Amino acid sequence: MKNIDNLIEELHLDNQLLLEEMPDLGLYMDQVIQIFENKLQQSKRNEEDKVLTKTMINNYAKGKLFFPIQNKKYSKKHLVLISLIYQLKGALSINDIKITLDKLNGKITNDDFNVEKIYSSYLKLSEFNIERFTGDTKDAREEVAREVSELQDEDSEYLEQLLLIASLVNMSNLYRKLAEKLVDNLPREIEVKEKVKENKKKDS
């Protein structure tokens, strides 16, 4: 099997859109798409894949995954949210992403929350996650190799790949399911509104 370290290197796991790469001035949709394509093209599985398209952005807007734009221009805050959406959609449904980002969008629009700080924290955590992932993958590779060696089959290389794929997907599913449970425990927008109404009644 191809050296696992080389495969991980080909993933370009540290390829993230950084804050300093996001302009402070408003951008039109085509400019937003160009920034994401230029930065994240190495992360694509296939050359013909698109990092971001007009349809995707329009769907995010219709689904209220980010707060409304002004004068057809996207602010730096919008780019931060779109970058988070890009990462989250690898594991979560659009509805789950909406629930996850709903309060953050509200804090940005109502409280002028500095979303750049939370994005910086996310980038730091991503660096730690890459180190953790590299170590966990090495352990998984060694465990799979031990299992396959006991099978003593002539197709050991294929079986090693098969078990490693299944093991990695299993681990991915465990993380995804926990993330979904965390989403399920987030307060829904309607629940927040009901609580606000209840508090107003108590105060009156």
Rank of each mutant, 00 (worst) to 15 (best):
M1P: 04
M1K: 05
I8P: 00
L11W: 02
E20D: 15
D24C: 12
D30K: 05
V32W: 07
N38T: 02
Q42Y: 01
E47V: 14
K50P: 00
T53W: 09
T55A: 11
I57N: 08
N59W: 06
G63P: 00
F66A: 02
I69R: 04
K72H: 05
Y74A: 07
S75N: 09
K76N: 13
L81A: 01
I82H: 06
I94P: 00
I99P: 00
T100K: 01
T100W: 08
T100A: 14
L101I: 04
L104N: 04
N105V: 00
K107Q: 08
I108S: 06
N110R: 13
D111Q: 15
F113P: 03
N114S: 13
K117H: 12
Y122Q: 11
K124F: 11
L125Q: 04
N129G: 01
I130N: 01
T137P: 00
A140L: 11
R141T: 11
R146E: 15
L151S: 06
D153H: 11
S156A: 15
L159S: 10
I165T: 10
L168T: 03
L174K: 14
R176A: 15
R176L: 10
K177R: 15
A179W: 02
D184K: 06
R188D: 13
I190K: 13
V192M: 14
V192S: 15
K193P: 05
E194F: 04
E194Y: 02
D203E: 15
D203W: 05
S204P: 01
S204E: 13
